[in-house]
C-alpha cells in the first residue's frame, strides 16, 4: 500500500466507509503492528480481520451491510465469529 492512497483512505473512513484488511495467504493472520505501513493504516482506521480470508470477508461484508448501516456495528459484526470464519488461534497442523 503506497502512501498516495492514505488521503483516500482517510477520506473514506471520515465518511463512515468501512475498510478492512485481510491476508492473501490461506493460513495467515493479519498483524498490522509489525511494519510501518500496517501501523499507519491502523491509525487511519483500517480494521484488520485476523485470519478471515478475503473471499469470505467480501461475502460477509455484503451480508453485514444488509443487517446494519451503523459503522460501529459493521466493525463489530465483521470481527464476531459466526460460522468459523474467524478464529483467535491459528492451529498447528502439518500444513503449517
Amino acid at each position: 500500500m503506497s502512501k498516495y492512497c492514505y488521503d483516500s483512505i482517510r477520506n473514506a473512513v471520515k465518511n463512515d466507509v468501512p475498510i478492512f484488511m485481510t491476508s492473501q495467504t490461506i493460513w495467515g493472520r493479519v498483524d498490522m503492528n509489525v511494519y510501518v505501513t500496517g501501523r499507519d493504516l491502523l491509525n487511519l482506521g483500517v480494521v484488520p480481520l485476523e485470519d478471515m480470508i478475503p473471499e469470505t470477508a467480501l461475502v460477509k461484508l455484503m451480508w453485514v451491510l444488509g443487517q446494519t448501516r451503523s459503522i460501529d456495528k459493521v466493525h463489530g459484526l465483521m470481527l464476531q465469529p459466526i460460522a468459523g470464519e474467524i478464529t483467535e488461534r491459528t492451529a498447528i497442523t502439518e500444513a503449517a
Binding site: 493460513w27 495467515g28 493472520r29 503492528n33 509489525v34 488461534r89 491459528t90 492451529a91 498447528i92 503449517a96
Partner: peptide, 19 residues
C-alpha cells in the same frame, strides 16, 4: 514438541505475537 490444544503458530514463531 507441540499439540494443537496448548500451542498455536505464535509459539512456533510462525506468526507474530498478538497484543
Amino acid at each position: 514438541e507441540a499439540d494443537p490444544e496448548t500451542a498455536c503458530l505464535v509459539e512456533l514463531d510462525e506468526e507474530p505475537p498478538h497484543q
